Amino acid sequence: MDETGKELVLALYDYQEKSPREVTMKKGDILTLLNSTNKDSWKVEVKITVNGKTYERQGFVPAAYVKKL
C-alpha cells in the first residue's frame, strides 16, 4: 500500500496499450490498483513524467501482467 492506503501492483512485463481504455507500463513499474474485480484486466493508475511534470492516467492492464504488493 502507498502512503494514502491504496493498494499497489508491480508490473511483471512490459505492456503497450491497445486501446484508449488501457495504459502502457514497463516491467518494474509500480502502479496504484483501483479495481481488481475482473479476473482478466485490472484498472490501475499510472504516473507519467513529461518534461519534469507528473501526470496521472487511469486505464486497464492484463491482470496476469501485474502482481499485488
Rank of each mutant, 00 (worst) to 15 (best):
K27V: 08
T32M: 10
V66P: 02
K26N: 09
Q16I: 14
S41K: 12
I48L: 09
K39V: 10
V66N: 01
K18C: 11
M25W: 02
S41D: 07
V66H: 01
T32I: 15
L10V: 15
G28P: 00
K53Y: 12
Y55V: 14
E22H: 04
K27Q: 09
K6Q: 11
K67D: 07
V44L: 03
A11W: 04
V50Y: 09
K39A: 12
V9C: 12
L8W: 14
N51A: 10
L34C: 05
Y15C: 04
K27P: 02
Y65P: 03
R21M: 14
T49C: 15
E17G: 15
K27G: 04
V66Q: 02
E56C: 15
G59V: 04
R57M: 08
V44H: 00
E7G: 10
A64T: 09
G28T: 02
K18L: 08
Q58K: 07
V50D: 07
I30G: 00
G52R: 02
L34T: 02
M1N: 13
P62K: 06
K6L: 12
L69K: 00
I48S: 06
V44E: 00
M1Y: 13
S41V: 14
R21H: 14
M25I: 15
S36G: 10
W42C: 04
P20R: 08
E17A: 15
Y15K: 01
E3I: 13
V50N: 07
E45D: 03
L33S: 03
M25R: 01
V46Q: 13
M25N: 00
W42T: 00
D40S: 08
E45I: 14
L31V: 06
Y55D: 05
G59T: 02
W42D: 00
T54R: 07
Y13L: 10
N38P: 03
K67S: 09
R21N: 15
V9M: 04
Y65H: 06
V23L: 11
L34Y: 02
T4S: 13
G59R: 00
K39D: 09
I30E: 02
S19L: 07
L8A: 05
N35T: 05
Y13G: 05
L69F: 08
K43F: 15
K27C: 06
T24M: 04
S19T: 11
L34I: 15
K39Y: 08
N38T: 06
I30A: 01
L69V: 10
N38E: 09
K6S: 10
M25V: 11
L8S: 07
T49M: 12
G28A: 02
L31G: 04
A11L: 05
N38G: 09
K26T: 08
E45A: 15
S36W: 08
